[in-house]
């Protein structure tokens, strides 16, 4: 293993991700696990893991990001996930553009400039309508496993319009459709459409700058990718590890800061 030069940690609401980069900023090691409410303990556990992999994390520069970033005492600097995602994706894909990150709790659209800087961004509003949670909750009603949702939705030839974007209302709308004998897959497709339209509205509110890039856990869902392309007429690209981009960006920022020091 090449020499680890910097670390990035992304303490999200559902998962925690740790990445390590070498002197060139290459992602050489990563770890992902469910979030523990005791962040300090989890970070200690991460340092033990690193020792097992032959390097001492405590000696390395580290940047923390994500909602729990302020709880990571070892981190020399805390940077928001917006900037970290932009840095991570820019370095991974080698260009700027529009990054759409759809997470469980949060969705964001980030316009990345030519020098990896954040030009503008938008986030979903208070309700869950524009996040992965919307799909999870409503699809739960349909008894479709999370990792099958996208495939099932795409297999539907028909699509029903879901007018409610409120999760609660959408659920009652679905119940009524089922009661009227509507098939599951067309409903699933409609649900995806509803989510995508919210995301597209966010993209339009900041103004699409091609190319379009996707990250976040939800983008593993093929329907999301395909329907965004349909709506915007833009092909999408994805980094190799869409879930790690925040942590990777954090590591890159740590590396850059240590070189500067």
């Amino acid at each position: 293993m090449e020499e680890v030069k910097a670390l990035g940690i992304d303490v999200g609401s559902t998962t925690v991700k740790l990445t390590a980069v070498d002197a060139q900023g290459k992602l050489i090691w990563h770890h992902l696990e469910g979030a523990d409410p005791r962040v300090e303990d989890q970070v200690d556990h991460f340092f033990n893991l690193m020792r097992e992999h032959g390097f001492d994390g405590k000696e390395l520069p580290m940047v923390a990001t994500g909602y729990g970033r302020n709880l990571v005492e070892q981190a020399e600097k805390k940077v928001t996930e917006i900037t970290c995602h932009a840095t991570g994706v820019y370095n991974q894909l080698g260009h700027g553009g529009t990054l759409v990150d759809i997470g469980g709790q949060d969705s964001k659209v980030i316009i990345i400039g030519e020098n990896s800087q954040v030009v503008d961004f938008a986030m979903n509003d208070k309700c869950a309508a524009g996040t992965g949670r919307f799909l999870e909750n409503t699809a739960g009603r349909l008894r479709v496993p999370l990792d099958r949702m996208g495939v099932e939705a795409l297999s539907a030839a028909e699509e029903v319009a879901i007018s409610s974007t409120c999760t609660v209302f959408a659920e009652s709308e679905i119940i009524s459709m089922i009661a009227h004998g509507v098939e599951v897959n067309p409903i699933l497709k409609g649900l995806h459409r509803s989510l995508i339209l919210r995301i597209v509205a966010m993209i339009r509110s900041v103004g699409l700058v091609p190319p379009l890039m996707l990250s976040g856990g939800v983008v593993k869902n093929p329907a999301i990718r395909e329907m965004i392309t349909q709506e915007l007429g833009e092909q999408v690209t994805m980094p190799e590890y869409p879930q790690l981009m925040g942590a990777y960006g954090a590591a890159l920022i740590a590396l850059k800061n240590s070189n500067r020091a």
Partner: peptide, 11 residues
Amino acid sequence: DPRAYAEEQVA
């Protein structure tokens, strides 16, 4: 705006 109209609830 039909998006603010909850079909089932109204019914």
